[in-house]
Structure formats: C-alpha cells, structure tokens
Design a binder for these strands. Structure first.
Lengths: 190, 190
DNA sequence: CGCCAGTGAGAACGATCGTTCTCACGTCAG
DNA sequence: CTGACGTGAGAACGATCGTTCTCACTGGCG
C-alpha cells in the first residue's frame, strides 16, 4: 500500500504542507516527517528546499490544468457550455476542504520577489490557464478581449473565494461570464 | 526633515520591506535599519513582529481605500463614471514602480493559515472594498449581483497585473465592467 | 553636585531553519 | 569470512530569526 515511490511521497507531503500553511512556514523536517522518509532520502531526491518548492509548483500546475481540462471536455455540449464549465469546476474546487486559494498566487506573494523560479512558475501557470481559456472562448466566436475578461473573472473568483471562504464566487463569475459572452457574440456570430 | 515621529518611520520602513519582499523574508533588524532607529525603540512601539505586521496592514488598508475614494470622488461625473473610475485608479496603481499585487492577498497567502490577525485584516480589507464598490454600483441602478461581479473583475485585475506585471489588466477589467453595467441597467432604469 | 530614568548601540540568547555529518547496521561481491 | 558500500536514524552545524539584555552615557530634577 505504501509502496509509492519516495519522490511522490515527498511531493505529496510537501504539497499538503506548503499549500496549507505557506512555504516558509513549513520546515524541511516537517516534510520529512510527513513523507515518512529520512532526511537523507529527501535531500537525495531534492537537493535543496528551493528545488522541492519548484517541483511542487510544477506538479501542481500540471495536475490542476489536467483536471480542469478533463472536467471541461466531459462537460461536452456547445463551446459556450464548455466555457461556463470552467467556472463550475472552479466552484467545485473552492468547495474542497482545505481550499486556500491559488497555490501560485500564494507562492508568488510569499517568494516571488526573492525566488525567480517561483515567479516564473506562477507566470507560467497563469499564462497557460489564460491560454486554455482563450482557446475555449475562441470556439464560442468571441474575440480575444473577451477571453482576457473571463480570465480576470476566474482569477477574481479564486481570490474572493480564498479570502472569504465563499465558494459562491464561482457562480457569480459564471453569471458575469455568461453576460460577457452574450454581449461579445451578439450580432457577431449568429 | 527627519522629524517624523518614530512610529511613522517604523511603519514606513516596514511597509516598503514587507510589501516588497514578503513578510517572512524581512527580519526585524532590516526594519530597524531602514527606519534608522534602534531595536529598543522599535520594540517600544511594536512589542512583537506580529503587532507590526498587523499595524502595517491596517494602515495600508486605510490609506489604500482613502486614496481610491478621493480619486473616485474627484472623477465626479455620473455614478457610472464613478464606477469606471475605480478601474482607472487600479490602472494607475498597477503602473506604480514596485507594484507587487495586493498586500492583503500576499499576506493572506503567506500567513493567513497561521496568523488569524492577518486573515482577519485581509477579509476586512476585501469586504470594505466590495462594500464601497457596491455603493457606487447601487447608485448606477444595477443590482447587488452586478457589484459582486465587478468586485471579481477588480480582484482578478490585481492578480493578473501582479503576476504578469501588466497594468493593462485594469483596462480589460474596465471594459468588462462597462459591458456588465450595460447589461444590468438595460431596460431596468432608463 | 548627585541621582536616576531613559537612551543608543549593539551584543547576547534561545529557538528554528536548511543542510550535512556520524555511525551503527545490513547486504552483497569476492 | 571480509570488506566496501548504501541506508536509517538522528545528531550536529552554521546561519538567521525574534526578542531581550548589557552598559556606558545623557539630561533633568532634588
């Protein structure tokens, strides 16, 4: 059962701790304890804490975006329903226990000024998400400007849901997105 | 010239450092050095770092919202122009040198999970801003739901501007706000 | 003058952090 | 069997942090 490879166990432990408490608030010893490994093993896989932080962010980015893409593709339906499905997925995410906002925004605020790798990971994550959303919006027939606006709604919903602990921000964003898509496609595409 | 009272000097130094590098990345000795005072004096005014952090956030909240209110009230014009002036003000803020996102979101991500006072300050700041915006939106004749949506746009613009260093997010948000206000007031109020 | 409350400057303290080292132990090659 | 090597467990190290203490000094008040 616990035969998962050490690297995964370390990353699992690091992710839960870093995301839940903040990176700087978590010592390497806490990661070691949570992973059930020895210090030697941890440093064998990640030569420094910074390496571990970067790996944590990269893995989370990949998993987060893959999960979103799966949900949206399963939503099927029209292109427009797919765009709105993004906000439904956000709502599910916000309601998860332990939700504490965007890991990349949190890390960026904490370390972005001092650790270029963290700033780069955050930029990459946001750019990828915005690009993905832009693709969906383009399929609806709305201009790129509308995609950027929907991006802002999504980011805002994440922030508000995190600070106020209110998953309802996703529904508000979805409603706004609906209106913006209406306005952007009215008269443009039938 | 340097006759400002010690408390202000400490808070000025703390704000620049905490906001620019993150709270945990700044030691009390750096605050002391930047304030030009002695350690004894610093701890005389703020018995602990947590007290200083809280005071930093409270003062920044008050100044930030006052500055916004001044800009909006000077924008004069119609209620609708006042709402849009919020986004213009955000654009000016984003373009300031050293802009690094919302101090409250950053602090929340870094310390919100471990320091309740920080989480409370962030919630308070966001609630006050949302309430202020709601007041402006109400004067336009749009429903509260629209105010919440505009809130999301503003928060999203702050996040995107911070991570990508792109002040243009404010203009995108303003454009979206304009559309949402159109949709919300069409047929409702002449 | 003599005293003392408060100050400046910075050393000191204890805790914690990231990282590395020690050392006894198990394993496998020869 | 023996020796070399990789591991587990955790101590140790050096740096840094938040906080407090030391101590010489100053200025006002009796």
């Amino acid at each position: 059962m616990e035969q998962v490879d050490p690297r995964t166990r370390i990353l699992d432990a690091a992710e839960e701790l870093f995301y839940g408490r903040g990176v700087q608030a978590v010592g390497m010893d806490a990661v070691r304890a949570a992973s059930g490994l020895t210090m030697r093993r941890v440093y064998q896989h990640f030569p420094s804490k910074e390496d571990l932080v970067e790996a944590y962010l990269l893995r989370r980015d990949a998993r987060w975006r893959a999960s979103l893409a799966v949900h949206v593709s399963r939503a099927g339906g029209t292109p427009r329903e797919q765009v709105l499905a993004v906000f439904d997925w956000l709502g599910d995410w916000f309601a998860e226990p332990g939700f504490r906002g965007c890991a990349f925004v949190n890390s960026f605020g904490e370390l972005g000024a001092t650790t270029p790798a963290v700033a780069a990971a955050a930029r990459h994550h946001k750019a990828e998400f915005a690009g993905y959303l832009a693709g969906l919006v383009e399929a609806v027939g709305a201009p790129p400007a509308t995609a950027a606006q929907l991006s802002l709604l999504a980011e805002g919903a994440i922030t508000v849901a995190a600070v106020h602990g209110d998953p309802g921000a996703a529904a508000e964003a979805r409603e706004a997105a609906d209106v913006l898509l209406d306005a952007a496609t009215r008269g443009r595409k039938r």
